[in-house]
């Protein structure tokens, strides 16, 4: 008992006594940093892999090309007459231009062969889909408050390829809701779509904070 205590005492308090014990003093420090590094890797690298599953969009869509052609977002993502928002276009919207091939791009050929000719809907994966309990009115934000699409959706109109769609394995929610930064750090308004982010903006703009404004 006492001998082992003696030893430990040397480790803890006696780095200047002998050279052997001076590097032994470093053992716990090294062990701490090694453990820190391991857990850092787990937290930043492995954990997101475990938590999120990844899927590819059915078609590699070029937003920039379409925005250039069509002019603005509302050409495809339009409001219906009753004020509801159409969201992701149906294939009937695509047919308006792509009934037959306009160019030679393989992705366009895929669209026509796999979806338009058989008359099937394209199973787009919606990055911004909120959980079922959320009511979101595009009319209130775009028409009434005059917000830019970019404020929430980011510069998606400038993208040339679709990025992979990641979703939480447990909740099945898109990763865009929680944000891509695993620590939850936000630099742009469109980095996250959590309730806190909605509440933050609503508070800044003095919108009613009652639950039934955004919930259903």
């Amino acid at each position: 008992m006492s001998t082992s205590e003696e030893k430990e005492r040397n480790v803890a308090g006696g780095e200047q006594r002998t050279e052997g014990s001076s590097w032994r003093f470093l053992v716990p420090v090294i062990a701490f940093f090694a453990g820190f590094l391991v857990f850092l890797c787990i937290g930043w690298g492995i954990f997101p892999k475990i938590l999120y599953s990844e899927k590819q969009q059915p078609i590699d869509f070029n937003h920039q090309l379409h925005v250039d052609e069509m002019g603005d977002c509302e050409a495809c993502h339009y409001f219906r007459e009753d004020g509801s928002f159409s969201g992701i276009p149906k294939s009937e919207n695509c047919i308006e231009c792509h009934e037959s091939a306009m160019g030679e791009h393989p992705e366009e050929a895929k669209l026509i062969d796999q979806y338009i000719e058989p008359g099937k809907e394209i199973p787009w994966l919606s990055y911004a889909r909120q959980p079922d309990c959320v009511f979101f009115s595009h009319a209130a934000h775009v028409r009434m408050a005059g917000l830019d699409c970019m404020t929430c959706h980011g510069p998606i109109g400038e993208s040339e390829h679709t990025r992979p769609y990641q979703y939480n394995r447990l909740t099945k929610y898109s990763r865009d809701i929680w944000g891509w930064n695993i620590a939850g750090i936000k630099t742009n308004t469109w980095d996250r779509m959590k309730m806190d982010d909605c509440a933050e903006c609503h508070e800044e703009n003095g919108t009613n904070q009652a639950c039934f404004v955004c919930h259903k």
């Binding site: 007459e81 009753d82 004020g83 509801s84 009115s137």
Partner: peptide
């Protein structure tokens, strides 16, 4: 909820009619 979702729907329409 007094069918609150119907108010949300009605508001949508109102907003789109400014």
């Amino acid at each position: 909820s007094f069918c609150f979702h119907r108010l949300q729907r009605a508001r949508n329409k109102a907003y789109s009619e400014d």
